[in-house]
Amino acid sequence: MTAIPRRLRDDRGAATTQLALVVPVLLLLGMLVVQFALVWHARHIAQYAAVRALATARTKSGTAAEGRAQARRSLTALGGRILTAPSVAVDRTMTQTTVRVRGVVMAVVPGLHLHASGTVAGPTERLTAPGGGQP
């Protein structure tokens, strides 16, 4: 039998070693892409819930509690699993209504806890006289 040159035998297993080093890095990069896509989506969900809550709370007969309830319904319908532990804050005054929706984004990458929020504000509906004062 002929002997295999030593140079050819030294490369055996190199592809396996390279694969074992590269695949985890590629998987981590893929998971990071998915994680940041979820953050982007969660921000849109939070903003949508805040807009819906503002539309409810800023009406003349609306209340802050009704706004919070509307935001919770919107979050349940759209982001129950993506935006976890949501908090809704509605501040309603005579002239301005502000809604803040915050939450933790579902984790794809272990140990990475990112937050998403949405904030909107608008004037509170009220009756005024033609000169700008109260009727």
Rank of each mutant, 00 (worst) to 15 (best):
A65W: 05
T76M: 05
A20L: 06
P86C: 12
T119Q: 08
M1G: 15
L32M: 14
L78E: 01
R58A: 11
R6G: 04
E66K: 10
A20S: 10
A121D: 02
M1A: 15
S61A: 15
G67N: 09
A107G: 12
A69D: 09
G122Y: 03
M106H: 09
G80W: 02
A69M: 07
I4V: 09
A20Y: 07
A65C: 02
T98Q: 10
M106C: 09
L112A: 13
A55G: 10
L114R: 07
A64G: 03
A129K: 12
R12N: 07
R81Y: 09
R9A: 07
A37H: 08
T119E: 09
A37K: 05
T84Q: 07
V101P: 08
V101Y: 10
L78G: 08
Q18W: 07
L28C: 15
A49Q: 08
L8V: 05
V108T: 11
G30V: 13
W40I: 00
E66G: 15
L21Y: 01
T124A: 03
W40D: 01
G103D: 00
L38V: 04
M94Y: 06
T2R: 10
P123L: 00
W40E: 00
P5W: 08
L27F: 15
A15K: 11
G118I: 00
T93V: 05
S74A: 15
G111A: 06
L19S: 13
S74E: 13
G13N: 08
A42Q: 05
L38C: 15
Q134I: 07
L112N: 14
R81H: 07
Q18T: 07
G103Y: 00
T63A: 12
V90R: 04
T16P: 01
T128D: 00
M1K: 13
Q70E: 09
T16H: 01
H113I: 06
R43S: 10
R7T: 13
A37P: 11
T124Y: 00
P130Y: 06
V90C: 07
H115D: 08
V99S: 01
A107M: 12
Q134K: 09
L127C: 04
E66Y: 13
R126L: 04
L83E: 03
T128Y: 04
H41T: 08
V22S: 15
A42N: 02
R9Y: 02
R68Q: 07
L38W: 12
